[in-house]
Amino acid sequence: MTTIGMIGIGMMGHGIASNLVKHGHALSVLAHAGNQPIDDLLQQGVKTFTTPQDLAAHSDVVILCVTGTPQVEAVLMGEDGVLKGLRPNTIVIDCSTAMPASTEKIAQAVAAQGGLFMDAPMTRTPKEAAEGRLNLLVGADAALFETCRPILACFAENIVHVGPVGSGHRMKLLHNYVSLGSVALLAEAAACAQVGGVNAQTFVDVLTMGGGWGAALERLRPFLLNHDNTGLRFTVANALKDLTYYNDMAQDMQAEHVVASAIQTTLKAAYDEGQGALLMPDLVDVFAQRSH
């Protein structure tokens, strides 16, 4: 099986790693303070390396699952980064959410070192990551996509080839704008309902029966009815990052983004109030408290 090196064993990355091991791949991970506990992976024979350079030097495929563009650029092009240890024909798969313009430059840098690059950002949640049921949005040439499909299928249920390098990240930003924007909109409406004395169950039931129903409502439902925020384990800080990336992308393309800018401003206000570590469902309380 393929020798894979992985950087970024967070809530999503841990599920990816465990499924790669489950499918028989030899896996190494980068030791990092930001990782989730990896004792279970180590017990299954997963190795660790202390630098991206060393990890890349021992891998046929390198998978990145880090926070965003600054982290991708750092682990790839830093002093002891992946590019320093990249072997000819090594494949780099970036599952992070990142800026497409940076992605295209990174792909060129990987190619200059004799490697191959694809962006394959994911949607869904840590639950689906653990179950091997992520959605992947792939930017790569057709031949590389087909080569990597069996590896991607180890941890993804739906794999969409969006187009050439950078297309996956463009589609991910479009997706997250719609999904996170919908959550922000519903959170504000739920807060307004709360202030106005509308019963939470009634609010959810009426939206469910009409045009307000959708994935965003289902993820907010546990919070609205039981104050359980685990239906969407996505922080305000991460949402602000994604909406900032989206607005930057739209501005670069000279595409309309008035609504997206308003959502970014909303998230930025919560972040500036010290609420960045809250999960997105908690915005309901943030908005309601501002009304008193």
Rank of each mutant, 00 (worst) to 15 (best):
T230G: 05
L55R: 07
Q108G: 06
P100E: 10
L174P: 00
H32C: 09
H292N: 13
D242E: 11
F234S: 04
A98R: 06
T266V: 14
S179F: 15
L86A: 04
M6F: 09
C192Y: 13
G78D: 07
G5C: 06
E273C: 14
A189T: 08
G68A: 15
L55I: 07
L64M: 08
T125V: 07
A189Q: 02
P150V: 01
A74V: 08
V92W: 03
Q275K: 13
E218D: 14
K84L: 11
Q275M: 14
G10A: 06
H58E: 12
R124P: 05
R219K: 14
C148Q: 14
M249R: 05
L76C: 14
L27H: 06
P37V: 02
A250Q: 08
S291I: 07
A237W: 01
G139T: 09
H23N: 14
A140S: 14
V66Y: 04
N176E: 07
L283A: 02
T244P: 04
G210I: 04
Y271F: 15
K268W: 00
T3A: 09
A269L: 11
K47Y: 07
A250Y: 04
E79D: 14
A120V: 05
A109W: 03
A191F: 04
V195C: 06
A270C: 09
G13L: 03
L240C: 05
H14W: 05
D282P: 00
S28M: 06
L240H: 03
A239C: 11
M249Q: 09
A184F: 08
L116W: 11
E131L: 14
Q275G: 05
F145T: 00
I4T: 12
L30F: 09
A112K: 13
G211A: 15
G210H: 12
L116V: 13
G34H: 12
V72Y: 06
H23V: 00
G231W: 04
D40Y: 13
I7E: 02
A200R: 11
G166F: 01
H175A: 15
G10R: 00
C154R: 06
N229E: 15
I151L: 15
M12I: 11
V195R: 15
D39T: 12
Q108P: 00
Q264M: 10
V110A: 01
G132V: 05
V160I: 11
E131A: 15
L20P: 02
A33D: 14
A200M: 08
T125Q: 08
L283K: 00
E146F: 02
T69D: 06
H292L: 12
G166V: 10
I263E: 01
M122C: 07
V206Y: 06
R221M: 03
V162D: 04
P88V: 01
L55G: 07
K241P: 11
K105R: 13
S28T: 14
F223Y: 15
P100S: 04
S291T: 08
V110G: 03
G276D: 00
L136S: 08
D285Y: 10
L278Y: 01
L217S: 01
Q254E: 13
T48K: 05
A191C: 07
V66E: 01
P150K: 03
T69M: 10
V75I: 14
E131R: 09
L83G: 04
A255F: 12
K241T: 10
S96Q: 06
P281M: 08
G114D: 06
E218A: 15
R170G: 08
D94I: 09
